[in-house]
Amino acid sequence: MSTAKQLAVLTLAALVVAGACSHRKTLVTPDVPTPESATASSTAAGTEGATTVVQAEPAIGSAGTPEAGVSASDLPTDLVELNRAGYLKDAFFDTNKADLRDDTRELLAANAAWLKGHPTVKVQIEGHCDERNTGEYNLALGWRRAFAVKDYLGSLGVDAGRIGVISYGEEKPFAQGHDESAWSQNRRVHFAITGR
């Protein structure tokens, strides 16, 4: 009777999940444990067997303090004012590039001159990116940009020991928008004075 056959086929299709014929076998012959269930102390079908004692999922704690000593550095307020004065100009970059443009080189030459005129000042060079790459790629791109600036300052005679380098990738955007005007603002290397 085709009706019966049809039904049997429907039932079969539903049971054979994603083509896994063996699963159906597992269902109807439960006394053959799968490798996993054997190690998971599964009881044979229909038998009174061992009890699985369900353990609590482990409590999750907040990571308060690290094992090694960690402290965020505090900047004195006069440095904040020094930075606000804007003696050192930020450098900007083309999309997805870490190369120095000609206008950037001119600007950096001025920065180098100022630094050589203030030989005790220490700076941190921060690499930043727009949001149009994945976050972790941008971190590496920001690192390249910051290093390109550091190398150029070095070539102009600024002592590398005065220059720290960090990348923030897309994590600390200067402009919050999602358009080219914001992105062009965010593709930059920023100078932060960290010591006078």
Partner: peptide
């Protein structure tokens, strides 16, 4: 046309084929 068979058991189950 081919007939459809419904089985009605004493327990009042209706079976279409064996379903």
């Amino acid at each position: 046309p081919e007939p459809i068979v419904l089985t009605l058991t004493r327990d009042r189950l209706i079976l279409l084929g064996d379903q």
